[in-house]
Amino acid sequence: MFDGFDVSWPLRLAIGIFTALVATFLLAPSLIVVPMSFSASELLQFPPTEFSLRWWQQYWQSDLWMPATKTSLLLATVTAAVAVPIAFAAAYATTRSLGWARLPLYGVLLMPATVPPILVAIGLFFVLARLHLVGSFPGLWLGHTVIAIPTAYVILSAGFARFDFTQEKASRSLGAGWWRTMISVVIPQMRFPLLSAALLSFLTSLDEVIVSMFVGGGANTTLTKVMFLGLRDRVDPQAAVISTIWIVLVAMVVTVVFGRQRQEPS
């Protein structure tokens, strides 16, 4: 960018130090939890003084963390499974032109991302309390799906913006009906946006705190709720275990998705 200029070395050094500091600030929290999870200490500290697997063992046997992990994974899966098709249909419709209705539709579909999550949470809590659905799986599912919709919608809309709709015309001219065209032509070519949308919907649900706090409970307590309560009341080293699992899981999924995408230039 500055190829027309020469930069003096003290300035270079200062820029380098600044960049390294900001990078450290961004990275450190993600990185320190891994060694912390192997700490032997009762207290939470970094760097750990002694190492052990006791927290991993305890996590594995915990009747608090394990069910919450299962709930969260199931919830995230169901959220992605519903939010993605719904957002796909909406993105298709708004891309294929709905005339004047397009702008208000954008507004509605992006609303869950613009309304502060705390308001989504207490609003849902209020409505679900009337329906006696607080602490129920469907209640959590509704909240998470709605929060995942804008993410999935934006990714899929961007995908459709790059999609060549002549493909659809070609398919129809060759005799394929609407469904056949969707399944054989549109969806295969949208597989990367679909995969990204599914991944991010899954992560959005897994990461969601506030709706889970208000709407979850009992048998349907999510990982984030357990963690949040733990963090607020008493800093618990087991959170480091679940954080490590989390980071490894996401790193794996991201590597797989992006690795495949790089292989297949689209």
Partner: peptide
Amino acid sequence: LVVMLPFWTALLVRTYALSVLLQRNGL
């Protein structure tokens, strides 16, 4: 990648880690 990595770490995990780093006897 440095900028994107925090996106892939749970919000609570990051907050938790920061609280460890910044606590009274933290790093």
